[in-house]
Design a protein around this nucleic acid. Structure first.
Lengths: 225, 225
DNA sequence: TCAAAAGTGTTAAGACTACACCCATGT
DNA sequence: ACATGGGTGTAGTCTTAACACTTTTGA
């Protein structure tokens, strides 16, 4: 089967920059390419938009197919459309960024990938295409948006302690915060609540566990101010 | 000439939401469609991305071809990729938004347009495709970004008075500001400077004229805080 | 009893808001 | 001389930032 047009059409793909925080490091999921071009090189998960699916659906589908990850916060990032960014043909890529908790991930490489692995954001291998630039843009957006929204909570598992949240913010932004001020700030947003449970972890006082308020299944973030 | 592919390809277009402020109203430039689909309906300027031009270049080119406008602030907005948004074929559109001064515009309809005209943002005609939604998203971004950046200055001509800037901000945001506080804020950003010239306009004291600092030709905006 | 992280208020500094009068010009 | 928009400073309020000790647990 082939498809014919009166003028040349580009291909459209999605690429997904999915972040997590693990071992006190911000990490990005990469897959190792199985086929040409850039065979064997690491790249962002992603793939071609099907003719009857929305671009958003494509991002969700590719993420699940290539990495097994689903039910994550996902947001459109930017569209990269310079000619020559793919050596095969003209490809325009709609990039997304996603956040997932540091726990409960079962990674599995999909059919188009030889392997899938988390890489520290400051310790990336050489990447295929212009994926280095896409990751830089995603990181900028992530750090900027964590300043003025509750986006950071999308990294947390179902139940979490306040110290865990603070830790996460310090890792992503790279700067320390005052414990009392951070707690005041987070609680004043009125987006989390105590679960009643405690987390005991070692030779010290147990910590209260919190959850996101609004047990709506939507993963909405709140813009502050 | 025809082009054949092994699997179906979408078309990719750009659509540009270009704003100006005129007669104390935020306005958007629309063109009237000459051909099918939606013949005769008003729509955003835009068109198909050529196989050898970048998506950004396409936006600039289409804007100039269809409206004669060039040298404006232009920023990528969002990519709209739902199937069915164009009745002819699958079309994915990369939307841009642009800002232009209220002066010195010579509008001319291009070859694909029967007419081009500025419409008040709250007084739009029925639009083709999903362009209504694109305009809403552009307006959100514009008002949000004017709060925390010097984006609003992109509406100003080469020389302008402080009152003109204040007026503009009040029109776009819909809320009044204190004159002294506004001036203190604007001057504290350190992005404009006096030209030494005055603007005389009617039976009152003439106003100092200002210009953007950094006579670099780039139209950069400054993010505040 | 010691080490380690959890939890908790107050004060000072800085940022923002509200507010009113004189100035220069054209008619 | 009067009407019109241009130009300017201060005081009060609110927000943000700095800072240290007690509590609970496991070893």
């Amino acid at each position: 089967m082939s498809y014919t047009y009166d003028y040349p059409h580009p291909s459209v793909t999605t690429d997904i920059v999915i972040f997590t925080v693990e071992d006190a490091t911000l990490k990005v999921l990469l897959i190792q390419r199985k086929g040409a071009p850039f065979k064997g090189r690491w790249a962002l998960p992603g793939g071609f938009v099907r003719i009857d699916e929305s671009v958003d659906d494509c991002a969700l589908r590719e993420l699940e197919e290539e990495t097994g990850i689903r039910d994550v916060y996902l947001e459109q990032l930017y569209t990269f459309g310079a000619p020559g960014r793919d050596p095969r043909e003209r490809v325009i890529s709609v990039a997304y960024f996603a956040l997932t908790p540091c726990q409960g991930l079962s990674l599995k490489a999909g059919t188009d990938a030889a392997a899938a692995a988390w890489y520290g954001i400051d310790d990336l291998p050489e990447l295929a295409f212009d994926h280095q630039g896409i990751i830089e843009k995603a990181r900028e957006r992530l750090t900027a948006k964590m300043e003025y929204s509750t986006l950071g909570l999308m990294f947390m598992p179902d139940e979490f302690t306040l110290s865990e949240v603070q830790n996460l913010y310090e890792i992503v932004s790279g700067q320390e915060r005052d414990k009392r001020n951070f707690r005041k700030w987070l609680l004043s947003l009125d987006v989390i609540e105590e679960t009643g449970n405690m987390k005991t972890a070692g030779a010290h006082r147990p910590a209260k566990l919190y959850r996101l308020k609004d047990t709506k299944d939507t993963k909405d973030i709140v813009i502050i101010r």
